[in-house]
Each structure stands twice: as structure tokens, then as C-alpha cells.
Amino acid sequence: MGDNLLEVKNLKVYFPVKGKLFPTVVANVRAVDGISFKIKRGETLALVGESGCGKSTTGKAILRMIEPKEGQVFFEGNNILAYDRKKLKALRREMQLVFQDPYASLNPRMAVGDILNEVLFVHRLGNSPQRKARTLELLEMVGLTSRYLARYPHELSGGQRQRVVIARALAVNPKFLVCDEPVSALDVSIQAQIISLLEELQQRLNLTYLFIAHDLSVVKYVSNRVAVMYLGKIIELAEGEELYRNPCHPYTKALLSAIPLCDPDADSAKILLVGELPSPENPPRGCRFNTRCDRVKEECLVNEPVDQAIGHNHQVACHLYHGNGLK
């Protein structure tokens, strides 16, 4: 295991589709179809992809909010998919989730102080005065003050709510956070604040992040490594710098070319993807990207590409890179 905090092996999450007439399984939506990755202690792995590619499902399966069909998730060397209820509750103190929509992820009828205190109470973390002190500490940690204790979520702005959501996740002192698009529901000006808050907390508390996003420009600032997902598979995984400098998979290239540039004179030959994401109920044969790829070959229609290392910590699943990474 070494310094890997989390290791995901061949994770599959299928959602059964039931028949209209009889409740038998007629098909499976293959939301996550066999993905593997490792996250080192203290690093941030970004999981990127368009809507419906299975990135949020991956995050939820790691947290066991959704039961995976197959695969293993090792947290500090233990396969957490085998945990029973009691062990699972203890695991909740180790890994937590920051939700996408801070408007929906706070109970509208509980004041901020109660929201934080409840978490501490449920996990029996300290007595009443200790919990109160810890609640204040948590608020300060995310840049809020004691004035917010009695406030209700609807009295807060989106950024303030997201701060409360982060404080709630940190209440149990976790080692690992899944950030499920934590800034995509926020204004651009607030996004930067929340991201820098997350980075600051990572430094201070030695946290490890799985950062889920649909937008590579946000990811650029936070992640050490980036995994690009397409239709339930990881198609490219590399260190952040490397991926931005040398994207290999045609899909990654298309995503990167979609980032707006500030320089009006820059050569902005955008690669436009045509068509929709194919249905994960019935993914295309061969390479899953073959319906939208601009460099599709005959082989892509038949064989599914396997992960290939094409450089230092850089892997890609594409038939263009046979052998030693030469096109």
C-alpha cells in the first residue's frame, strides 16, 4: 500500500433498468464500468468528465452511498466494501463528502450551529461545552464567525452555505474528502474563494481530496493528478501539468480546447465534439469514444483499448498510442 490512502480496483456500479410490465431486470445502466486508481496521502486527484459519465457515482460508491456491483475500494489498506454497519459508521469519521449544491445540502430548518453540533453529537465527540467550542472552531476554520451560529441556511449566500457544508464535513475530522463539484453551483467570483479555502484546509489538516468536476479550468488550480472519465471509464490519467501540456486522448484534447483563453490573438482552433454522449445502457462496441472521435480507426470499432503507460505517470486508453507512445 505504502503511501496510498485510497485505492480503487476495477470498480463497477450498475443501475438495473426494470421492465415496465414485470419488475425484472431488462438492462443495466453501466454508470461506472471498471475503473481503477490510487490516491496518495495529501494529494488531490481530480475526476473530470461531462455530465452522465459516472464521476459523481464513483464518488458516491467510494463513500458507500451507492453499493457497487463489483470491485474493491481500499482505504488505508482495508477493503471498505466489506464493512458492516458498525464499521461503516466509524468509516464516516474518516471520509466525508462536500456536496455540489449548497442550497440543497443543508437542512433548511436547522440553524448553522445545530447542523454542526448534530454531527458531533451523533459521533459522540465531546460533551456539550466541548461540542460548542468545536462548533466555533469549525466555523472559524472555514472563515465564518460565531455570529452565524443562529442563522438558517436561507439567510446565507451560496458561498457562505458552501463554507458551512465544508465545516460540517470537517466536523468528524476526516482524512479524506470527496468534493463533488463543490464550486459549480457558485458564482465565478465565489468559486475562487471556496477553492482557495479548500486548498488552505488541505495544507492545514493534511487532507486528501477526490475532486470531481466537469470543467478542466477549475481543476487546473487544485489537483496534483487528473483522471478523465468518459462513459464509465477512465480514459486518461496524468499529473496535472503533464495533462495540460501534453493531452493524448482525443477526448481530453477536445475538453482542453474548450477552455476559454484570455488572449484574443491566440490560436483557438477548438475541437468541437459532435453528437451526444451514447447511452451507458448500451455503450458502443470497441472504444467507447468511437462515435464522437475525430481520429477513429477501424480498430477502434472492434477492440476496447486498454490502459497504456506513455510516460512518467501518464496513462491513456486509446488505440492511437500503441507501443511506446508514438502516434
Binding site: 452511498m65 463528502l97 456536496f99 449544491d101 440543497a104 451523533v122 468528524v172
Partner: peptide, 16 residues
């Protein structure tokens, strides 16, 4: 709702 999902991830009981 996400806040109910949040409660579940935070390890709260069904009763609560």
C-alpha cells in the same frame, strides 16, 4: 434531497 443524503453520509440513524 441532498441534505438527507448528507445526514446519511454523516452516519446518522434512520430514526434521526
Amino acid at each position: 434531497q441532498e441534505f438527507v443524503e448528507a445526514a446519511r453520509v454523516l452516519g446518522m440513524s434512520d430514526f434521526r
